[in-house]
């Protein structure tokens, strides 16, 4: 079962394109982003099944991965 990767609106505003991707498990979030052509440094926060994770997190089967960018600042 693939994992789903969703892009928050803030990230979508920046890079355009789709808001959801089905991705293969077994690779880190960082590698997954590179493979999709998304610059990893644009992603400010990775949330996996509701918990904040780093981009080194290895995606597992069925994970719901959510990615947020920061467009506003504090």
């Amino acid at each position: 079962m693939p994992a789903t990767l969703r892009l928050g609106a803030s990230l979508r505003i920046l890079i355009g394109g789709r808001d959801e991707y089905a991705v293969e498990p077994g690779r880190s979030v960082h590698e997954t982003l590179v493979s999709l052509g998304i610059k990893p440094e644009l992603v400010a926060m990775v949330s996996v099944n509701g918990e904040m994770q780093t981009k080194d997190y290895v995606v597992q089967e069925g994970d719901a991965v959510r990615l947020l960018a920061v467009v506003g600042g504090g």
């Binding site: 969703r6 892009l7 928050g8 609106a9 803030s10 808001d19 926060m45 949330s47 509701g50 904040m52 959510r66 947020l68």
Partner: peptide
């Protein structure tokens, strides 16, 4: 309904 609503609110 916003995608980042929960994470943003938490942190």
């Amino acid at each position: 309904d916003a995608e980042g609503f929960k994470d943003w609110t938490r942190y």
